[in-house]
Structure formats: C-alpha cells, structure tokens
Design a protein around this nucleic acid. Structure first.
Lengths: 124, 124
DNA sequence: GCGCTATATTGATGTTTATCAATCTATTCG
DNA sequence: CGAATAGATTGATAAACATCAATATAGCGC
C-alpha cells in the first residue's frame, strides 16, 4: 500500500484552499500531539467524571462542590482540574472566595471532528 | 448546588425507558472507567496517528506498512496496536503472513455520543 | 524439515503520572 | 489586623507507561 502523504497545513485556515486529494492527507505529528493531549486529559476516570459533572452544572460548580463526588483529597481534585485546564477543556472564573469551572466547547468540537474523520457513521 | 445523582443504569439498553430528569443523571464510575480507557488509548500521539492512518488505509494496512510512518521499532508499534486493540478501537485479521488492522466503528460512536453530552454544539 | 519473513512477547530502563500530607496564597468578614 | 475559608502548590512515593534489544512464534516457499 502506498504511503499516505503528510498534510503540512493541517492546522492552517483552509478556507477556499483546494487540495488535490484531501482524503489521502494524514494527521500531522503536530496535530496528533495536540489532539492526543486533549484525549489524554479526558482519559482518566476522575477527569472524565469532572467533565461530565461540570457539563451538567450550568457553570456554577466550584471545587468544593466537586469534592463530594469523589473519595479524593482536595489537592488531587485541584490537580485534575489543572490538567483539564492546561488542555483548554475547562475554564475558570473567580467570584469572591470561590472559583467556578465550566466546560469549554471549542476543544470538544475539535474532538468530534476528529472522530468523524476516523469513520464510524454506519449503523452497528 | 445540589449534588447530581448517579445513573445506575447508564449502560443498560434504555430504549423506551422514560426517566424523570435524565439531564441530571451523571456518568457512572463504571461508564467513566470504560470511556476513559478508550480516550486514554487514543491519547498518545503515535496511537492517534495509527488510528488516523488505519482509518484512511481501507482496511488493508499491515504492521510493516505502519512502521514506515514512525521512527520507532517494530515491537513498539506492535505494543501500541495491542493497546488500541485491548480497548476495542481496532481489529485485526490475519491473511497468511500479514496481519491487517482496521478501525472499529462502534467505540468511536460511543465517544461521539459522550462528547455531544458534554455540550459544545453552539457556534464558536 | 529449513530458512525467511511478519508480527508478538519478554525483560529492562528511564520517564511520567496519581495521590496524599503539609504548606502556601488569596479573599472575605469581623 | 486577625481568623476563617477556598483553592493552589510543593514534595514525596508508588504505580503505570513508553521504549528498545533480544527472543519467540507462526506462516510461507523450497
């Protein structure tokens, strides 16, 4: 099988750019690193549950609210929040003594696009 | 904020099951573990690129084909394939001396559903 | 059976990660 | 200012992970 060429402009703004055979261009190592970072951040049960809880919390969930869901210490929860934030998956907003976290939509959109590109639209 | 209750039947077949407030049921720890496992498997640049390459390879990509894309030894590629296979993301089919790998659609569908539940459908 | 080839497994090593206890920072309230 | 509280940071430790070299397995052709 022929080697699929690398897409050198995978992350560039491709509006109106017409490539000869876009389907044969694979993910660049840079894009792979970025997207893998996002997946890795979500790839921990606690962090995935944090994402889930935040997504249902209406943007009004502080760290002390999160703590009650897990059998973990506060620094550990704080660490997981930091990992998610570093990958741009969540955002924080301080209000007085509390810090409210909420899910950022943009990273999720990139992930859905990626999964779609991998296929799996058929039934079953 | 009130604590969001846990969904005890998150993985059951929910066809026609009518829950009072489904939006307030969070991911069960079991579902979180399973889905996090899938995300974690994809959360490595090499494995993500393998998924990408396989998804474009039309199901006719053997390990020796994959090797040329990476600066890694054959056992390392083999290891990553094993990780992806263990999580049900890819499948293998032996034909003579070669083993052909292809992406499994079902795991990807579960992931897309999860990401949709986290929100991020708006523009921007 | 024998050599060749494709892939998997094992074992070792260095790196990263998850977690906690202890401590620090910053904000509110008196 | 001082006490209380929410959350972050640091440092330590054990577990998990990525990688390679070496070796094993298994199918093919002679």
């Amino acid at each position: 099988m022929a080697k699929i060429p690398l897409d050198p402009i995978a992350n560039a703004d491709q509006t109106d750019v017409c490539l000869p055979q876009p389907i044969l261009l694979r993910l660049s190592p840079d894009s792979a690193r970025r997207l893998a970072g996002i997946l890795k951040a979500m790839g921990h049960p606690v962090r995935l549950q944090i994402m889930d809880i935040l997504s249902r919390g209406g943007g009004q969930m502080c760290v002390c609210d999160l703590e009650q869901y897990f059998d973990l210490t506060q620094p550990t929860i704080s660490h997981h929040l930091k990992v998610l934030r570093a990958e741009g998956l969540i955002d924080a907003e301080q209000k007085g003594l509390w810090i409210y976290y909420h899910v950022r939509a943009s990273a999720l959109k990139a992930m859905r696009a990626l999964l779609l590109s991998f296929g799996g639209n058929e039934d079953g």
